[in-house]
Amino acid sequence: MTILVTGATGTIGRRVVDQLARRGAALRVLVRDPAKARFPAGVAVAQGEMLDIAAMRAALSGVSTLFLLNAVAPDEVTQALVALNLAREAGITRIVYLSVIDGERFPDVPHFAGKLAVERMIEATGLNATILRPAYFMNNDAGIKDVVAGHGVYPMPIGARGLAMVEAGDIAEVAALELLRREQAPGPLPSTRINLVGPETLTGADVAAIWSAVLGHPVAYPGEDLAGFEQTLRQAMPGWMAFDMRLMAARFASEGMLPQPGDRERLTTLLGRPLRSYRDFAAGLVAAA
């Protein structure tokens, strides 16, 4: 019985691997370059990528449970559908898929719409899966700490409706628990969805106030300059991705990203502890500097 983790070197995937390894799971990870991979002892490494059919078939051989995480990419949907069809071909009936919350409410945002299409494929083909639907990752803000601290501005245009921001460690732990639940069950379990949210719903002004308290000096929220946001992102990512992120931010401003009734209670019960707060996340970044 082996769990295959894709996206294993990223923010979430690496944490999922660590969580599973600590719990003694038999693990295999799919990576493009094994020489750059650093995993706990005992983790088997399969080289390849999702559109390399031969490599995926080899990676899935002997696997009982699949964690499917694929990054935002122009061919994200194709990657996911190929991986799921190959898993079905291999007889794998235990799957956890990392999607995104509010796919139905963000139909014009490419990576949201793509993940929703993958969810629909899972449903239509009768695959047994847990679909994890995380809200905005707190950890997205790790890269802007110096801007916040140095310029006294929280630059992410997240709006005034509020986002139920969730910490990456909480996402990974829920994923690991669901993978083990499916792995250890005597047979395939029914499909389910879990919204992954944090303990608070935060606006741009709320987050700026948290940074002000953590840093001990004022931090402002300047509002939603979406054109400027896209232009800044183009310095660090392809233009199509920067535009995708701009469309997402526009939906943050108009719709927010809100939890459903019972989401937080369900997660707290599942984890057996409180959800991690944005204040603790920000304080941890400052302490580590």
Rank of each mutant, 00 (worst) to 15 (best):
N195I: 06
R193T: 11
V174P: 07
L132A: 11
K115C: 02
L163T: 09
I92Y: 02
D146F: 11
D146N: 14
G169R: 11
E183R: 15
A135G: 13
I144K: 10
A168F: 03
E123W: 10
T192C: 15
R105H: 09
G126F: 06
I101S: 14
A175S: 13
F112S: 01
V82Y: 03
V147I: 15
A185P: 01
Y154M: 09
G150L: 11
G162L: 10
L179W: 10
L84V: 11
Y97P: 09
R181S: 13
L84C: 11
R105F: 03
R94E: 07
V153N: 05
L81T: 08
V166F: 04
A83Q: 07
E167Y: 14
V166N: 06
P134W: 07
S99A: 07
A142K: 06
T192N: 13
R133S: 12
P157A: 04
I171Y: 03
E178R: 13
L177F: 12
R94K: 13
P110L: 00
I144G: 05
V166T: 07
A176H: 08
N85G: 13
R94F: 06
G169T: 05
S191N: 03
L180P: 07
A176W: 07
A172L: 04
A83V: 08
N139M: 00
L163K: 04
Q184R: 15
E178Q: 15
M165E: 12
G169W: 04
L177Y: 11
I131V: 15
R181A: 15
I101D: 12
A185C: 01
R161K: 15
M165I: 08
I194K: 08
V82K: 03
R193F: 12
A172Q: 05
I194L: 15
A117M: 06
D146T: 14
V148S: 06
H151M: 13
H111V: 00
E173Y: 10
M165K: 11
I95D: 11
K145E: 08
E104F: 03
D102Y: 01
V148N: 04
L196W: 13
A168G: 06
E119I: 05
L81C: 02
I122F: 11
H111K: 01
V147E: 13
G103I: 00
L86T: 05
D141H: 14
V147F: 12
E89D: 13
G162T: 09
G187I: 00
S99V: 02
V118T: 09
M165T: 08
D102Q: 08
I158E: 03
I92C: 02
A164R: 10
A185G: 03
G91L: 02
S191M: 09
P107D: 02
P107W: 01
K115R: 14
N140T: 01
G152C: 04
A129V: 09
M121F: 15
S191T: 14
L180A: 12
A175C: 09
A113C: 01
